[in-house]
């Protein structure tokens, strides 16, 4: 039985509140000539990507299917490693990190298009999964998972299995899970791709609130220009290369649709 929570539903309880005007100058990711090949070089997913991402930024990566945006996100989240080139996280070369699992456990939260909740676990249990590597007690894991689900408005679905939740509810649980390890970096791969427009608005509102309140660096992959416009900065990719990197407010109006 969870203790009664004192956290307001519209407040996220993870970390101390971010400063009002957080420093945004520290470079968290620095990529130099990053390439990723598949099938022995027959498929070139990334062809020399160079970019920097700073702490607290909300970056949208936009592009068509096969443009390499999801591959780039996988590399940033250490789910995959580049075929060549350099990715530095807070100045450290990621290929030299002894344990990328440790990096993911300590620094990264993922939100996926297809939610990727574990089907045999309840919502509350799913949110506890990333906490296993953090050395927290069972009671602590349960308490914090309850608070996170309350913060994303899912306190009434704690014991529901994923197949008993709607798409929007599943993504809320997935967002709560992505915050479970108090990440510096939030990586979202088409988080609204499987949702209707109403749920898309709510999920993006939730993600933006998380990013703002916690000053989290958020990198979001989407093919929807209207979602990309919510970001501080939009990186456009095509054929494995960055073809544009600009503030969101400079995006061409013609590319901005609507999610509502």
């Amino acid at each position: 039985m969870l203790p009664k929570l004192a956290v307001p539903a519209n407040r996220l309880p993870l970390m101390p509140d971010a400063p009002a005007d957080p420093p945004r100058s520290e470079v968290v990711f620095s990529l130099q000539d990053v390439r990723r090949e598949f099938d022995d070089g027959h498929v070139l997913a990334l062809r020399g990507v160079n970019l920097e991402i700073r702490a607290g930024e909300f970056v949208a990566i936009i592009g068509g299917s096969g443009s390499g945006k999801s591959t780039l996100l996988s590399l940033l989240g250490a789910l995959d490693t580049p075929s060549s080139g350099s990715i530095r996280f807070q100045g450290k070369e990621m290929s030299e990190m002894p344990d990328l699992g440790e990096f993911r456990a300590r620094h990264v939260g993922f939100v996926f298009q297809s939610f990727l909740l574990l089907p045999t676990l309840t919502a509350l249990e799913n949110v506890q999964v990333p906490m296993f590597e953090l050395g927290w007690s069972r009671a602590e894991r349960q308490r914090r998972a309850g608070e996170l689900l309350q913060a994303v408005g899912m306190e009434h679905r704690l014991d529901h299995m994923p197949d008993k939740l709607s798409g929007g509810e599943r993504q809320r649980v997935a967002i709560a899970r992505s915050l479970a390890n108090e990440p510096d970096i939030l990586l979202a791969d088409e988080p609204t791709g499987n949702l209707d427009s109403q749920n898309s608005v709510q999920i993006m509102d939730l993600l933006c609130r998380v990013q703002r309140e916690k000053n989290t660096t958020m990198i979001l992959v989407t093919h929807d220009p209207s979602i990309a416009r919510l970001a501080d900065r939009v990186i456009t990719m095509k054929d494995g290369q960055v073809i544009a990197d600009q503030p969101a407010d400079r995006m061409a109006p013609s590319s901005a649709g609507s999610i509502s």
Partner: peptide
């Protein structure tokens, strides 16, 4: 998924 979520 477990690996992505940081499981060793």
């Amino acid at each position: 998924i477990l690996l992505a979520l940081g499981w060793k």
